[in-house]
Amino acid sequence: MSIDWILSFALLGIVALVSVYALIYLPVQTHRDFRRMLSAFARTVEIREVHTSGSAHLRAYYAVKIAQRLRLPPSTIRDIEAAALLMEIGKVGIPYAILNKQAALTVEEAEVLKLHTMIGQRILEQVEWTRRLAPFIRHHHENWDGSGYPDGLQGEEIPLASRILHVVDDFVVTMRGKPLDNVALRWQAVQQMEHHVGRKYDPRVFEAFRPIVRKEVFDRINHCHLSDA
């Protein structure tokens, strides 16, 4: 084999290696970095609000499932996932005592807690890449009939992402402190939420959400049945 061939093969090999590095390894690493960053912010809130460990990832999981069922474009789904991980970030500005109070909140305390939507919006507006998520966070406690806060928006005025986050948030809060693998409790939570469809939740979003939990419940029962046999 002549020296030219060896050189050509060496060059080709280098190009192939660099391409694999650039097209496969680096994108995976970048994506992982991004996920870790979002997790760091989610952890920040979980450190402040006790007994909420892991709830941000649960929110993100259901938010993505709903968004997929609604057939939203992938870029929107990514935004919704990030917003679900960041939605409670405003709670770093809420006094610790109110955030972790065991007893029921007084009216004033509840008003203070409501500020977390606006604080979250303000935090996200200060950083370039999260700026477009800020309105989603601001409106994630708006109700479908206009009775929510902070702006009392109604129906389609509320960003779709916020309507999804609202459903997901309420589900996670209902499940808080309960064993998550208990299918009966999970279905009970969905049934409790069902009373509020059209009042608190967008019917379309809830229609997408219900089958997700139902499928999980079914899968689990099926799985137990099979493994017992």
């Binding site: 680096l26 970048t30 970095d33 960053m37 760091a40 912010f41 770093v92 935090i123 200060q126 890449w129």
Partner: peptide, 17 residues
């Protein structure tokens, strides 16, 4: 550069927090 950007923005957000 994308990674550097993510890193910088992480720091920015955390310093806001």
């Amino acid at each position: 550069l994308q990674q550097i950007r993510i890193y910088r923005e992480t720091i920015r957000t955390l310093s806001v927090l």
